[in-house]
Design a protein around this nucleic acid. Structure first.
Length: 395
DNA sequence: GACTCGTGGTT
DNA sequence: TAACCAAGAGT
C-alpha cells in the first residue's frame, strides 16, 4: 500500500528548500539544472547554474556557442560528456524550434535518460510521471522495505515509485510531487541517520516499522580502483602562456583541454628518459619537478609527474597544440590538470631560496612543505602524495 | 548487467 | 583519512 500523496505535498508546501531553479518552468532552465545535478551536489551546482545562465541565457545562445566556450564554462564540474551532450541537445532543440514536451520526446535527446526526461516532463510540462533518482530509490527502498541490493533492485524500486502517479493528488501536481520526493530524500530520508521523527510519512514506512531504515538501501560492493601513472609537460612561452592541447572527444576528460603528457598506464611510473618521446615537438630544457600530483576519478586513481620548461621566445604552437594565457588556462582546465599546476607551485616553494627555512631538509630527507602541500582529492597525502620519503617523527 | 565517466563535500 | 555520497547517461 502506497502512502498518501497529500501528506507529502502538504509537507512540501511548508518545508520545501529554496533553490535557484525552484519554481522555474522554462524547460531550458529546468533541463540545465537537471543535467548539472546529475551525480553532482546542490551545493556545487548552485553558483555554476547562475554563471552558466548568465553566459548562455537561452537554448539559442547555447546552440550558437562554440564547443570551447561550453567546455570552459563546464570546467571543474566533471562528467564532461554532460557538456558535450548538452551542447548537441541544444543544437537539436534549436533546429526543431523548441523542446519536446513529452517524456519520450525528451528521452531522445543526447544526455537525457530515463531520469532527466521524466524530471523535465513533470516539472516543465506537468506530465504525470515520477523521475527516479537516488533520492527516490532510497525513499522507496525504505517505504516498502526492499532489501534487494542496488543496482539490481533498481527496476523494482522504479516501478514502486511510479505507482505514486496512480493517486489523483500526485497527478494534479507532478512537478511538485517529484521535487517533494527529492526534498524528502535530501533533508529527512537521508542516506545516513534519517530523521524519521520529522517525516510526513512516518507511520507509512515499512523499514522504520521494522527498525531497518538505517541499513537501506543495500548496495553492492564497489570494485577497487586501479592506479595509473602519467608524466606531463608544462611548457611556458616567453609571454608566460601555457602550451595545451585538446583530449580526444571521447573517453576520460573527453574534449577538454589538457597539459600534454604520456598516456596514463598501469604499473611503473614513467622515467624522464622514457617519457621524453611523448614531449610536445618544441626544443626545450625539461626539468623534472619533485613530487607527484594525485587525482582520484570514479574508477581509477592517477599519479602524475611533471616536467617543466620555459621558452625565451613565443613560437607558434605546433600542430594540434595551442597557447593559452595562464589565468584563462586555470579556468578552462579540468580539476585533474589543476593538480599539476598546484604541484608546480609546490615545487617552486620547495626550491626557491626565499623559502629556505621551510624547505630545509628534515631528518628523513623530505622538505616539510612537501608533506603538506600536494593535495590528492583535496587533501595532503604524505609520502604517497609527494613521492618523497615520509618524515619519520620517531626513531 | 557491467563498465566508463569527475569532482567536491561529508562523515 | 579513507570511504561514501550526489536530481545518471551511454555503451
Amino acid at each position: 500500500m502506497h502512502p498518501p500523496a497529500p501528506e507529502l505535498l502538504d509537507w512540501y508546501d511548508r518545508h520545501r528548500r529554496s533553490l535557484p531553479w525552484r519554481g522555474e518552468r522554462d524547460p531550458y532552465r529546468i533541463w540545465l539544472s537537471e543535467v548539472m545535478l546529475q551525480q553532482t551536489t546542490v551545493a556545487a551546482v548552485g553558483p555554476r547554474y547562475a554563471r552558466f545562465l548568465a553566459r548562455f541565457p537561452d537554448v539559442a545562445a547555447l546552440a550558437a556557442a562554440p564547443w570551447e566556450a561550453v567546455a570552459a564554462e563546464w570546467a571543474g564540474l566533471g562528467y564532461y560528456a554532460r557538456a558535450r551532450n548538452l551542447h548537441a541537445a541544444a543544437r537539436a532543440v534549436a533546429a526543431r524550434g523548441g523542446f519536446p514536451d513529452t517524456e519520450s520526446g525528451l528521452r531522445a535527446l543526447p544526455g537525457i535518460g530515463a531520469y532527466t526526461s521524466a524530471a523535465v516532463a513533470a516539472i516543465a510540462f506537468d506530465r504525470p510521471t515520477v523521475p527516479v533518482d537516488g533520492n527516490v530509490e532510497r525513499v522507496a527502498a525504505r517505504l516498502f522495505d526492499i532489501r534487494d541490493p542496488l543496482p539490481a533492485a533498481r527496476s523494482r524500486l522504479a516501478s514502486l515509485a511510479r505507482a505514486f502517479m496512480e493517486q489523483p493528488a500526485a497527478r494534479a501536481r507532478p512537478g511538485d510531487f517529484a521535487q517533494a520526493l527529492f526534498d524528502l530524500g535530501a533533508t529527512i530520508c537521508t542516506p545516513r541517520r534519517p530523521a524519521c521523527a520529522l517525516c510526513p510519512w512516518r507511520g507509512h514506512c515499512a523499514a522504520q516499522a521494522a527498525g531497518v531504515q538505517d541499513s537501506l538501501p543495500v548496495k553492492a560492493p564497489k570494485p577497487v580502483r586501479g592506479l595509473r601513472q602519467g608524466m606531463h609537460f608544462l611548457l611556458r612561452d616567453g609571454g608566460g602562456r601555457l602550451l595545451l592541447r585538446h583530449r580526444p572527444p571521447q573517453g576520460l576528460l573527453g574534449g577538454m583541454p589538457e597539459i600534454p603528457g604520456t598516456p596514463w598506464r598501469e604499473g611503473e611510473a614513467w622515467s624522464e628518459a622514457e617519457a621524453l618521446p611523448h614531449a610536445p615537438p618544441l626544443a626545450a630544457e625539461w626539468r623534472l619537478l619533485p613530487g607527484v600530483a594525485r587525482h582520484g576519478f570514479t574508477h581509477l586513481e592517477l599519479e602524475m609527474r611533471l616536467l617543466s620548461a620555459r621558452l625565451a621566445a613565443s613560437p607558434p604552437a605546433p600542430e594540434g597544440f595551442f597557447w593559452l594565457a595562464e589565468e584563462e588556462a586555470r579556468r578552462a582546465l579540468p580539476s585533474a590538470m589543476g593538480r599539476l599546476l598546484a604541484l608546480e607551485s609546490l615545487a617552486a616553494a620547495i626550491t626557491a631560496p626565499a623559502s629556505a627555512p621551510i624547505a630545509a631538509p628534515l631528518a628523513g630527507g623530505a622538505p616539510a612543505v612537501a608533506l603538506r602541500a600536494v593535495p590528492a582529492r583535496g587533501r595532503p597525502r604524505g609520502a604517497a602524495g609527494t613521492g618523497l620519503p615520509k618524515r619519520r617523527t620517531k626513531s
